[in-house]
Design a binder for these strands. Structure first.
Lengths: 247, 247
DNA sequence: CGACACGTTGAGATATATCAAACGTGGTGG
DNA sequence: CCACCACGTTTGATATATCTCAACGTGTCG
């Protein structure tokens, strides 16, 4: 039922799952049926798939997409991005059928946890059920924030907002050192996230750079002035429900 | 603990909660501590509030908003709209603190269910926990659809899409007769939903009318050609996870 | 070296926002 | 009963953010 211990034991417990109670975390680790390595730009699951496991992202970046309807030319939209320490599709546990595609952006390492095992876990303790439920609700809060961004913010502020969010989330996942953060995304990814054209993404990034706010290049974001970047975006990380600093 | 039976017994079980198992529904009804009537345009709860109950919408329309950050002029965005038979803030159960405002659009009637009671319910049965969890996940799926709409769809298609969604959801709540559906929203509400200006909303619904697709007026949407309306929006209601027709 | 993927820049097109005014329409009070 | 007002809607004119198209760089890799 559980995989090779040498794999399992060195999971760093960080990011989102660090919020889970220790005992629950142990249960999840021992319930893991497989650790899988994904190449960059590969599909994990597609709209309509019925899942019988959920995946925890150990390493790399993954994303969820809504495809344009049959209709025509409309491009897809990225509706979520996952960083290490987050469940990618925990919502598949109560939902089963997926309403979106899941792909890796970079090479990624994921731990698969069978739904049967998760069901046993939540049957054991309703506190554990609430803790897992809560993780999916944070995802929903992020959806709402993205909704605000795409419907109300200008290109420049949108991009600043997204960079602030990634800075915050990756820092929490232990992937940011100081004001530099690994952001291994193409400009076309940023376009799918913000709803802008790739051309405009390029110009917006230049404006951020020339404004001395941050430099996005070669898969990294170098933040020169976090204060002003946040102010430009009107950024408040409350919606991420991160534990207080120095937890 | 439970309220006057004459109030409770005549709750029609319809819309979203119709998907819940009968026994769970009975538990929820008897756990209800209060039925409250809200005037139109009143605030139920605000960003940061810590909830100790969740509200089920019995009648009327309610909405959730994200406010623009301190920053300045940015208007708020509507991130969700609730129709009868849906929980308004079930996510408050695992989350406690809200990340958004909740207001009534019309006069509304809501049933308050204390979190303490809901916690007892989910402790009793993990299937019930999953059923409630699932309702909040449908909300998240709708968030994702709205995200697609605001980031990828044109004004005309956006409006068509929203009308299709409301038609589907209100029909399921038993509030649509034929191709006419009560949509008691101002054009400024439609603007907050779609991210358009109120002026453009006015022009867009004129175009829909002149195109023979639907007439939005006086708080109703008269759908003249559902086929073409759906085609214009590229609409597929799969994300609502409604039970198959003739359930 | 050539091919390809990604990024940048410029020019022009367009969807939508903004501003301002006018138009119902239903209530209210004189 | 009429005058008036508040509110929501409609229309026109203009501004602008962003898109689209097309060309050109630039690095990487076989």
């Amino acid at each position: 039922m559980s995989v090779d211990m040498s794999d399992v034991l060195d999971w760093r417990r960080r990011g989102m799952v660090a919020q889970l109670p220790a005992a629950l975390w142990d249960e999840i680790r021992s319930a893991c049926s497989e650790v899988r390595h994904l190449p960059p730009r590969s599909t994990l699951s597609e709209t309509g798939d019925r899942m019988n496991y959920s995946a925890l992202l150990l390493d790399g970046i993954m994303a969820r997409y809504l495809r344009g309807s049959s209709n025509g030319t409309a491009r897809r939209a990225m509706v979520s991005i996952q960083v290490p320490g987050e469940f990618i599709d925990l919502h598949g546990l109560p939902m089963k059928a997926l309403d979106h595609d899941v792909e890796s952006l970079t090479a990624a390492e994921i731990a698969l946890v069978p739904h049967a095992a998760l069901e046993r876990i939540i049957a054991r303790s309703s506190d554990w059920a609430l803790a897992l439920w809560r993780l999916t609700m944070i995802d929903a809060a992020i959806h709402r924030h993205w909704l605000y961004r795409t419907s109300r913010m200008r290109a420049l502020a949108s991009m600043a907002d997204f960079i602030c969010e990634m800075h915050e989330r990756l820092r929490h996942a232990g992937e940011a050192d100081g004001h530099s953060v690994a952001l291994p995304l193409l400009q076309s990814d940023l376009a799918e996230i913000t709803g802008l054209s790739t051309v405009h993404v390029s110009r917006v990034i230049r404006d951020l750079r020339e404004g001395g706010l941050c430099t996005v290049r070669d898969g990294r974001a170098e933040i020169h002035d976090l204060e002003r970047l946040r102010h430009l975006a009107g950024y408040d990380p409350g919606y991420l429900y991160l534990p207080a600093e120095g937890d």
